[in-house]
Design a binder for these strands. Structure first.
Lengths: 253, 253
DNA sequence: CGGAAAATTGACTTACATCAAACTCAGTGG
DNA sequence: CCACTGAGTTTGATGTAAGTCAATTTTCCG
């Protein structure tokens, strides 16, 4: 899992709904009447510790989610992209600062209104829970990456997560965009810039990836990359599509 | 936070509900008609990857929540104690194996029934969300511990989290019980047994803690311990008691 | 008690961090 | 259009926190 934020649930967007699916409404529809806002690179959507006043639906762009420790160290806890929601799983205040990496277009809704809307629609409640559960799964996975994997394993699993985000077949070479800086990646993976850079260089030297400019990586040897990921390559996207699409009014399980 | 599982919400249990609080039901009450089960040390409650069939309410005891990587490495993603719930934030299958550290007494409920019960009571829905948000906050905190803190900082922040669990005043010396083994702690903190042990010894040598047997630690110099925790000592237990107790029928914010 | 598992301690190694250049490249202005 | 600039990145040399390997020592349970 690339971003610990609520995943875009690509399936429900891309699959036709057949005759079966009664999916009357989906979570995204809650935002449809909200105006589209734009944030430029460098701006902050909200700050860690701020009262969590809104829930956001990212339409496009990339955000960096981070916290600063008292002594200045920075932890990037995740990235958020178009199609995801932000701010759903916070209690009173935001857990992190959300900063724009590349120009973001989004819709927002006051938390109270968001929850009221979801709470009022029996269809939506299980969808919200499912989203949060996905986010939880991502957080757990990242814990393991940070706690158990070597530098190389961390970087490779990051690249593979990014690849998976594209939706492309993960068996075949893919070109991925990494809009964030090396520092962002380093702070996300609990490494230094230099270490991230050295792993990139080594992967390139061994022909596993190609680097084009600062922000695009071509993953070439998918099999070998999988092997280097130390077991954090597989198992995302657990096979449970039934929740979001087909039986959307039913609680998980 | 110590355990990434849903916190016991100590306040709602200990505070009187005054006249104001209309709190008709609380989340725990959903389990009251379920029989009390017992699990002995070493048993597993469920396994990572199993279909997530039940939600558990831990009455007493301690559990270790862990995942095994393909190559045998083990990650302990958290511990669970009496008063907490387990299995709430899973989609289709359990994200980790739950193993009993010390004899556990619990009640369980089929997930479908649990969610139906919560979904049917407008009072309970915000409570469930609040619980999951707390769990999310704990997961985020642990990410930072694993990604940014030194060995000493990790161990100290672990000790302080354990101290906070006791509910005692965190300014004054406390004696804490650590029922889990050093290996469990090491795998939780992304360190080795030896490193954990060395940090314990150093803290003892410097008079910051006392060690009595394998499982009890006396925290003596709270101020200095706080300083060594590298900024992960404070800020749990965010001031948002309103959700669970006083306005329990209202969504956060 | 005795014995095995758990924990501690010590000597040594290593993966990653740190410090310090050099290089790249996207803007900007001449 | 190209030189200049500075942030971002890569590369290299060196340092160090934590890991590994290997004995002890402690604990606790029968």
């Amino acid at each position: 899992m690339y971003a610990p934020q609520i995943a875009p649930s690509a399936r429900s967007a891309t699959l036709p709904s057949f005759g079966l699916a009664p999916a009357t409404v989906n979570l995204e529809s809650v935002f449809t009447s909200q105006p589209l806002e734009t944030f430029e690179a460098g701006e902050a959507l909200f700050w860690e510790g701020d009262a969590a006043s809104h829930v956001f639906q990212i339409v496009e762009g990339c955000l960096r989610l981070c916290r600063i420790l008292p002594d200045g160290r920075r932890a990037v806890t995740g990235f958020a992209f178009g199609g995801e929601m932000l701010g759903v799983s916070f209690l009173g205040s935001y857990l992190y600062t959300a900063e724009v990496v590349t120009k973001v277009r989004l819709r927002r809704l006051a938390r109270g209104r968001f929850y009221a809307a979801v709470d009022g629609a029996a269809d939506l409640r299980p969808q919200l829970l499912a989203r949060i559960c996905e986010e939880m799964g991502a957080a757990h996975k990242h814990m393991i990456v940070l706690g158990q994997l070597s530098a190389e394993e961390r970087v490779v699993s990051f690249l593979l997560s990014a690849a998976r985000r594209t939706g492309a077949d993960i068996k075949k070479p893919v070109s991925i965009e990494l809009p964030m800086s090396r520092l962002d990646i380093a702070d996300y993976l609990g490494l230094t810039i230099e270490t991230v850079s050295r792993v990139f260089s080594k992967l390139k030297r061994n022909g596993l990836v190609g680097l084009e400019g600062r922000h695009t990586v071509i993953l070439r040897r998918m099999r070998q990359l999988q092997d280097l990921a130390g077991g954090m390559a597989d198992d995302d996207e657990l096979p449970s599509p039934q929740v979001s699409t087909r039986y959307s009014t039913v609680w998980p399980n």
